[in-house]
Amino acid sequence: MGLWGEQPEWIELIQGRLLWWPDAFAAEADAWLLQLQREIPWQQHRLRLFGRELDEPRLSCWMGEAAYRYSGQTRQPLPWHPLVADIRRRLEALCERPFNGVLLNLYRDGQDSMGWHADDEPELGADPVIASLSLGATRRFTLRHRQGERRQLLLNHGSLLVMAGEMQHHWQHALPKAAGVTEARINLTFRYLPPRGRAA
């Protein structure tokens, strides 16, 4: 059974693998949410869309050991926050692989969102593993295969979602707006950036 014990196993998808563990960190979730809301230096970044610069519809923070380029911008890393570093170690043990960076997103309410995208930046190497921890408001997470298949999950407080295999090459994912959601959600997406010149 491995480190997952009696918890959910990997789900095989067309050209990808997905692990969904709804109560992975239910016991710690309340304390983690409050501490990260208070202590992370959240920023609202700008993005260029169809030739216009707009505020991203969420707050974020890139933390870790290397710069990361996405959405047309290079983000320099902040040092590991002690709590985030502890969460990282726990996820490394569960996923049996290293992580050296994390993108933290703060969705202030249901009007904050993330559009369709794949985590397929060259910096992540081939077939990256993305471990995503959700804290706070439950939000709908949608997936679509490039040939049309769709899936969705409700990401709840303390849940863990892991995307692996070929997913980032063949699937996109999004977090749509959610009318009526007034509470905040924090999402931590851990990833590994191989040293330059090496594949994952």
Rank of each mutant, 00 (worst) to 15 (best):
M1K: 07
G2M: 13
L3Q: 12
L3V: 14
G5F: 10
Q7G: 14
E9L: 14
E12N: 12
Q15P: 05
Q15R: 12
L19V: 11
W20G: 01
W20Y: 13
W21P: 01
F25P: 02
F25L: 14
A27W: 01
A27F: 01
A27D: 14
A27C: 11
A27Q: 13
E28G: 09
A29P: 06
A31V: 10
L34E: 14
L34N: 08
L34R: 11
Q35T: 15
Q35C: 14
L36H: 04
L36F: 06
Q37K: 15
Q37T: 12
R38C: 13
E39C: 09
E39Y: 10
Q44F: 00
H45E: 14
L47Q: 11
L49P: 08
L49E: 08
L49Q: 15
G51D: 01
G51L: 00
E53V: 10
L54Y: 06
L54D: 01
E56G: 02
R58A: 09
R58G: 08
L59D: 06
L59H: 04
L59C: 07
W62K: 00
W62A: 00
M63N: 02
A66N: 03
A67H: 00
Y68A: 01
Y70A: 00
Q76V: 02
P77A: 00
P79S: 11
P79D: 05
P79A: 14
W80A: 00
P82K: 09
V84H: 03
A85S: 13
I87H: 01
L91Y: 02
L91W: 02
L91R: 04
R97V: 11
R97C: 15
P98V: 01
L104I: 05
L104A: 11
N105L: 00
L106A: 09
Y107D: 06
D109T: 03
G110A: 09
G115K: 06
W116M: 09
H117V: 07
H117I: 07
A118L: 07
A118K: 05
E121K: 03
P122F: 01
D127V: 08
P128W: 04
V129R: 03
V129I: 13
I130V: 15
I130N: 08
A131F: 04
L133M: 11
L135P: 05
G136K: 01
A137H: 03
F141D: 09
T142R: 12
H145Y: 05
H145A: 11
Q147T: 13
G148L: 05
E149D: 15
R150E: 15
R150Y: 05
R151G: 11
L153W: 13
L154S: 13
L155N: 07
G158L: 09
G158D: 08
S159A: 12
S159N: 04
L160F: 03
M163I: 10
G165V: 04
E166K: 14
Q168I: 12
W171C: 11
Q172T: 13
H173A: 12
L175W: 03
P176L: 13
A178S: 12
A179P: 08
V181M: 02
T182S: 14
A184M: 06
R185C: 02
I186E: 04
N187E: 08
N187Y: 03
L188S: 09
F190E: 10
R191T: 04
P194M: 03
R196W: 00
G197N: 02
G197K: 02
G197R: 03
R198F: 07
R198N: 07
